[in-house]
Amino acid sequence: MTGPATRPVLGAQLPLVQLVDVWKTYTAGEVPVHALRGVSVSIFPGEYISIVGPSGSGKSTFMHILGCLDVPTSGRYYLGGTDVSHLDEDRLAEIRNHRIGFVFQQFHLLPRLNAWRNVELPLIYAAVDRRARRARALAALEEVGLANRANHFPNQLSGGQQQRVAVARALVTEPDLLLADEPTGNLDSRSSADVLAMLAELHRSGRTIVLITHENDVAAAAERTMRFRDGRFVGDQESAA
């Protein structure tokens, strides 16, 4: 099934994310690269969406725009009804801090901070006081099943555990939107299964999740799969689940 990527039914609920004809063009080299060529999409609260597509099709670019890590070259991005496509650096930082949780393929933990200190980082920038930060970081680690590893440094944790710390860090601010760019790309199948089970659990508890993956079984875990090709959204399908 192809067509506009707006979910037709879900009561009278407003979309959490709405992209309208978003283009992203990189002009670094000789020829401009159109990483996104007019993407329009809506994501509703509580959805669990997987994104698939060939390498270079613009999945990561799309997700960086969703996460306000980058801004569209043209088009509109409404997050919770507010146009965020042309905000200044400071406002974008605030949105990233309060509303978005990001999980990267390479974990991106700071090696010199232990698990709970890594998890508390976003709260520092939210000006939460130290005592509350620690409590919330420990609670987030508990949620991902790593309460007993709070004082371990990243190099003392397995890949799967590191990624779960990264998920805890993404969750600790209670964001509206959890974004994961190939979170299992660097993990073995067992750890992948752990992380996916965790995402499924988070979805059940009501979180909105967008997940990029190359693997079909991973994509199948989501309730809706979006396909990308050549910077365009080429259709979505509801999974059987």
């Binding site: 996460g67 890590l69 650096e89 400071d90 930082a93 605030e94 990233r96 801090n97 309060h98 990001f102 991106h108 700071l110 980082l121 976003p122 920038y125 939210a126 860090r169 601010t173």
Partner: peptide, 16 residues
């Protein structure tokens, strides 16, 4: 630079 990028991704402003 990567640490700076990560801190920014987590909500640090350039000023911070």
């Amino acid at each position: 630079v990567r640490e700076i990028g990560l801190r920014k991704a987590l909500g640090a402003t350039p000023r911070v």
